[in-house]
Structures are given as C-alpha cells and as structure tokens.
Design a protein around this nucleic acid. Structure first.
Lengths: 156, 156
DNA sequence: CGCAAAATGCAAATATGTTGCAAAAAGAAT
DNA sequence: ATTCTTTTTGCAACATATTTGCATTTTGCG
C-alpha cells in the first residue's frame, strides 16, 4: 500500500474543516433566527445543510452523531419551520420531508424530481418555472410547489 | 308556499338521472379498465366523479351508500391508480388524497390550491402552468404536479 | 350451475406523528 | 461562577393513516 493512507488523511482533514465551518455557520444561523443554540439543533441544521435532497425524520436522525429522540427531531424541525429556516415538502413517500429554505425564489422553491423507478428524489435547483399567472381574483399566493415524477438519468 | 315544492322535485329528478348516468358510465369505465365491476368499485368511482376536490379515504367512505371496509377502500383506490383512472395527490393534510385522472393535460393535472387559513383545498381546473423546459438531459417526465398555498377568496 | 380467480372483511401489525409531563440544559441576571 | 427562569429534551403513551395475512364471499366465465 502506498497512496491510500495519504488520501484518507486528506479526506479526513477536509471533512474536519468543512464540518467546522458548517458548525460555525449553523450556530450563527440559530442565534439570528432567535433560537437557542443547542447541540441537537446545530447537528440537525448541519445535516440539512449537507443534504442533497429533502430528508424525512428518520433519515435526518440516522445522520446525527448524537442520539436524539424522535420527538425532539420533529419539534426541532417544527421550530425551524416557524423560524423560516426550513420547508416541508412532498415527495413520493408518505412521510414529511424537510429541506433548508434557502435557494428559494420569492414564492417558490426549486422543483423536486422523484424517479418512479428507483424512488430517489432530487432537487432541480437550476430549473425554473414561472408562478401561475391566470389564477382567479381573490386568491393570494403564498407558496407554489412543483413536483415532477418520471425517470432519472440513471433509470431512463 | 308556491315555488319551492316544484323546485325540490326538479332537483330530485335531476339528481336521480345524473346518478343513473354516472352509474352507467362508472360500470363502463371499470370494464374498459379491465377491472371487475363490483358494487363497491362502482360507488367509489361515482363519489370521485362527483367530487369537487381531492378526497381522502375517510371522506370517500363517508359518501358511500353501502358500508365498505377501510381496507377495501384503500385497495380499490390502489387498483384505480394502477388502471390509470385515479391519481394520488398531496394536500396540506397528512392523508393521501385521491381524484380522477381525467381533466389532466398530457403530463400534468390542474394545480391544487390549499388555503392556509381555512385549510380547504380546491382544484384550479382552468389554471395552467407550462411543463418545465430546462430540465437536464436524461430526465424523462411522466407527471408534473403543482400545489399552491395561500389565501382563498373567502379568507383574503 | 359450478369453478377458478379476484375482491372483501376483519384483526392485527406497521408507519408516522403528536401530546403531557418530568428532568435537563440554556441564557440572563447577579 | 451561582442562581433563577424559560426553553428544550426524553420518555411513554396516544393518535392517525395505511398495510398485511388470511379466511370468506363474490364475480366472471365456461
């Protein structure tokens, strides 16, 4: 063996600094959102920051270093929603999925794509859809969500 | 009293014939979808045909004349989905909601609007959103769903 | 009418959240 | 740092929505 050890160390160091940076950001975010900075909240926020797709409670919990109670995870996510940090969104599964509310246009986030074959959901961050235009008088739009089903590049 | 009685009879007769027509249609629909024509299926299909918004299992069951088991309702709806007659859609509530798959454009149904104040969901049948265009290569779209939250005319 | 396949009912299991309450931790004041 | 108040957390129980296995009934067909 010659290369592997170095590479592993490098990955470790990178991971370490990335994690540090995220950690600092997460703490600041919590404070500016008026939420108490608890270990659990910081970790959940970090998981969401690193997520590439909306996650449900179980998936979030599985990615935590510490053991957090199911209830706590749900309550934390709810507090994030209230603070405007996080959105709930719909995917193919029954469980609620959560994702950071950044990267959203004024009244809508990016669309989500769920593959009907492999069941994976991913974010179409660069795909843009206009807001509905011909909505009847009297309706006030607060949020528009778009979900697309089909075959992903892997499965098509 | 002079007018009312007539009006009531008229409504009754209309309702009766409408129901008859729907019933006949429902049977034909089942046969052509390759599904056995059972009483329960016909009734559930009729409920969906008359629905003005997506309904969940409980709401569907409440509108049936006969007593159908919860399980049967779910299984019937699943068979309708498989046959392409029905779509599942997401509303604000946690339960699945179902609606007929007619009135859909090739790859998308009408958007659904849920009022964040009164929590009612309604179909925006005449509202049109174009299909996403700039979706990356390799994705095959099978269905696009749009959900809008905001205030309905009653609540705004 | 009789038969095979499919649909239904029922009870139990599962998945997903939520609530009430007591214990622990956070942040502010001292 | 210590104390005090408020918020957060864990735990157990509850609630809701849906699914599964299996025995029974019904449907469509010859």
């Amino acid at each position: 063996m010659d290369g592997p050890p170095v590479k592993i160390v490098s990955i470790y160091i990178t991971g370490f600094y990335v994690k540090k940076a995220l950690n600092r950001a997460a703490k600041e975010i919590l404070v500016s959102a008026g939420l108490r900075r608890t270990g659990g909240r910081v970790e959940i926020l970090e998981v969401l920051q690193q997520a590439k797709m909306p996650l449900n409670q179980e998936e979030i919990q599985a990615q935590l270093d510490r053991d957090l109670n199911r209830t706590t995870v749900y309550r934390t996510l709810e507090s994030f929603i209230q603070a405007g940090l996080v959105h709930r969104c719909f995917v193919r599964e029954r469980a609620w999925h959560y994702e950071l509310a950044h990267n959203c246009r004024p009244l809508q986030c990016h669309p989500h794509f769920t593959c009907t074959n492999c069941d994976r959901t991913l974010c179409l961050k660069d795909v843009f859809l206009p807001l509905v235009k011909d909505i009847p008088d009297g309706f006030i739009i607060q949020r528009q969500q778009v979900r697309i089903e089909g075959l992903c590049p892997n499965c098509s």
